[in-house]
Simulated assay, not measured.
Amino acid sequence: MIAYLDTCTILNLIQINYNDEYIKHLKRLFVEIKLTPKVFEELERNKYDNVIDDSQKMILNGIIYNNLKNYIDFEDFKKELEFTKKHNPGIFKENGESYSISQSIMNSRYGKEDFGEHLLKTYFISDDAPAKEEFGYFYQINVVGQMINTIDLMTVFWLKQYITKNELIRYCNSLKQLYNKDLNILSIKIKEYKSSFDKEITPKQHIIITKLISMLSDITEEFKNDFYEICNTPEFRVILKKNNDWNALINRIKESQFREKIPYIIKRIKDFKKVYSID
């Protein structure tokens, strides 16, 4: 089997725990792993977007260059690129997802040993839901293989006994946090404020802060409404006046699209517990 990865997949697999554990499992599962040059360009450009601690940058670079640079596929696939553009007008973009789809088609049809040897065996792994929705049917009618996300991948890792059931659930919960860097930064700032000014915080403010910290560490489907409610309380507005740098973070969180992904992740966790009897 062949696996094509896009940029968000790579970063999610690495930044969940900042080690190469999941990359190693990926190598065990697939015969070949491939990255288009476009994906690697995006990786170079965006790799620090969710990094909070500068010490993590060196770890991230080490994992990328030691594990993934050799998987860049420089094959000429201009015909497949034009084919994908032609049959997906208005959808095709100059990005890693569109290029990966094109290159997946080529490799599924022209194998090393036999024509079409990788049909139905070429996987595109992406956490980009719009790309999966837009290209899913195109991928299917060209009998390339399957488009899966990293939660699907973790499920396979669990079924293959590479990871435990608890690790599977932990990945899903961590993914909720990873989708928005600003959530993590705000949580850190609030905890630091609580620790430094605990004696100055009123009982009501203490309740509000504790509730907010809990919300930021365990995102639920009700997060949007609860977050708005807390931010508008008189107690929190008093705290906010003393921490003006929080305003930009809060505004970005309110405008972020990450909330659209949270219900999906929560549903997957519920399904794991129900279908696979995971506690």
Rank of each mutant, 00 (worst) to 15 (best):
M1T: 12
L11C: 10
I14K: 02
Q15C: 07
L26G: 02
L26F: 02
K27H: 08
L35P: 10
P37Q: 06
L43M: 02
L43C: 03
V51H: 08
S55I: 04
G62V: 04
Y71N: 13
F74H: 13
F77T: 07
E80W: 11
T84Y: 01
K85R: 14
K85I: 15
K85D: 10
K86P: 00
N88S: 15
N95Q: 09
N95R: 08
Y99S: 11
S104N: 13
E117P: 08
L119S: 03
F124R: 00
D127W: 08
E134K: 04
Y139N: 04
N149P: 10
T150N: 11
I151K: 06
M154G: 07
V156M: 08
W158E: 03
K160I: 03
Q161T: 13
I169Y: 00
C172Q: 05
N173I: 11
S174E: 05
Q177T: 10
Q177L: 15
Y179E: 12
L183H: 05
N184F: 03
I185P: 05
E192W: 01
F197D: 10
K199Q: 03
E200T: 12
T202D: 02
Q205V: 12
H206F: 03
L212A: 01
D218I: 09
T220E: 15
T220M: 13
E221L: 09
K224Q: 06
E229H: 01
I230Q: 07
I239Y: 01
K241F: 10
K241G: 00
K242S: 12
W246F: 01
I250V: 11
F258M: 15
F258N: 11
I262Y: 02
P263F: 09
I266P: 07
I269Y: 00
D271E: 12
K273V: 04
I278Q: 07
